[in-house]
C-alpha cells in the first residue's frame, strides 16, 4: 500500500461503538497506545472491522497536533 500519508500505524481493533451514522473505532497499537477514529458505519461494514482484527490507522502529517507538558 503506497500512499502519501506519512503515518500508517498497524494495530488491532479494540472497540467499535456505533452511533447513528458514524462509528467510533479504537485501534490499539503495539505497546498499548490507543488511537480513536470516527468513520462511517458503512466503512465498518465495508472493511469488515471487528474487535480483535488487525487494521491500520492512517494519518496525514499535516493533521497531527503536538502538545508538551509544562
Amino acid at each position: 500500500m503506497k500512499l502519501s500519508a506519512r503515518n500508517s500505524l498497524q494495530g488491532v481493533v479494540k472497540t467499535i461503538i456505533d452511533g447513528a451514522v458514524n462509528a467510533e473505532v479504537v485501534i490499539e497499537l503495539p505497546g498499548g497506545v490507543q488511537i480513536t477514529s470516527i468513520v462511517t458505519k458503512d466503512a465498518v461494514t465495508a472493511l469488515g472491522l471487528a474487535v480483535g482484527k488487525p487494521a491500520y490507522a492512517i494519518i496525514k502529517a499535516s493533521n497531527v497536533m503536538i502538545g508538551v507538558d509544562h
Binding site: M1, K2, L3, S4, A5, V25, S37, V39, T40, D42, A43, V44, A46, L47, G48, L49, I58, K60, S62, N63
Partner: peptide, 17 residues
C-alpha cells in the same frame, strides 16, 4: 487540500468513503 490523501494504487480497503 490537507484532507486529501493520495494512494499510488487503488487501496483494497479504506474507511474513507
Amino acid at each position: 487540500s490537507k484532507d486529501i490523501t493520495l494512494f499510488k494504487r487503488h487501496p483494497e480497503a479504506t474507511s474513507a468513503r
